[in-house]
Amino acid sequence: MPRFHCPLTLVAGSSVALPPGAARHVQVLRLQPGSPIVLFNGEGGEFDAVVERIGRSEVSAQLVSHRAVERETAREIHLAVGMPANERMDWLVEKATELGAASIQPLTTQRSVVRLDGERAQKKRGHWQAVAVAACEQCGRNRVPVVAPVAMLDAWLRERPAPQAGLLLSLDAHARHVRDAATGAGAVAFLSGPEGGLTTQEEDAARAAGFTPVSLGPRVLRAETAALAALAVLA
């Protein structure tokens, strides 16, 4: 059944005008009045609904009932990643959302190929947030992970709200495997670098900020693959 993110106040038994993106999607799918759909606003659960009216650019839906269903991971996992180049960040955001990331923090590091600031950074963030929304619509999640504003690694390390554990992807030969380093069910922040990884100075700064070095095994993974592999293990 088609699912649409509708970031509005939703009340069973009422009608709602779908936001422009969802309305266009209804029209692209050639749905008709009476077609069943699912709406979610990110505040928990989802609503069974039916398309009520389709205009030239407006679509309204009748909310039938609320279902308190969640499809989140048992542990909150917050990804902080040195932005990979080209379109790989789009792919990372999409897959991280599907795998259950609670939030995604794009970072600029010393070895970053991609460097964003100002209006360009804001536009990219908006684009990545839309990617996360579309991934939630597809995979069934009812809570959309927040894609944070692009930040410099050193500033983020100083200012971030500390979760119960911070894990740092490292090539340190003494680093424990990520599955053995994260214990308990508390929130975890997983930090990984861009292509080429973090510099020694950046790793030292992360350790000083409370991050524990961890490994994903003997193979060297691409920047976008590493973050997703860790998420799959930690979830």
Rank of each mutant, 00 (worst) to 15 (best):
M1E: 12
R3G: 05
F4V: 07
C6D: 11
P7V: 14
T9G: 10
A12S: 12
A17K: 13
P19R: 14
P20V: 10
R24H: 14
H25W: 06
V26G: 00
V28N: 03
S35Y: 07
V38F: 12
G42I: 13
G44L: 02
F47M: 05
E52D: 15
R53E: 15
G55P: 06
S57V: 15
S60A: 13
Q62G: 09
Q62I: 15
L63I: 03
L63Y: 12
V69C: 02
R71G: 05
E72T: 08
R75T: 07
I77Q: 08
L79I: 13
V81I: 15
G82C: 09
P84C: 02
P84I: 13
R88T: 09
M89P: 03
W91P: 01
L92R: 10
L92C: 06
E98I: 10
I104Q: 00
I104V: 09
T108F: 07
T109R: 06
S112T: 04
V114C: 08
E119A: 12
A121N: 01
K124C: 01
K124Q: 09
K124Y: 00
W128I: 10
W128N: 03
V131M: 11
A132L: 07
G140S: 02
V146S: 11
A148R: 15
A155H: 09
A155R: 14
L171W: 05
A175T: 07
D180K: 13
A187R: 04
A189W: 08
E195D: 08
G196E: 02
G196Y: 02
Q201N: 13
R207C: 08
A208I: 06
A209T: 06
A209I: 08
G210N: 07
F211Q: 06
R219F: 01
L221C: 09
L228T: 11
A229S: 13
L231G: 05
L234V: 09
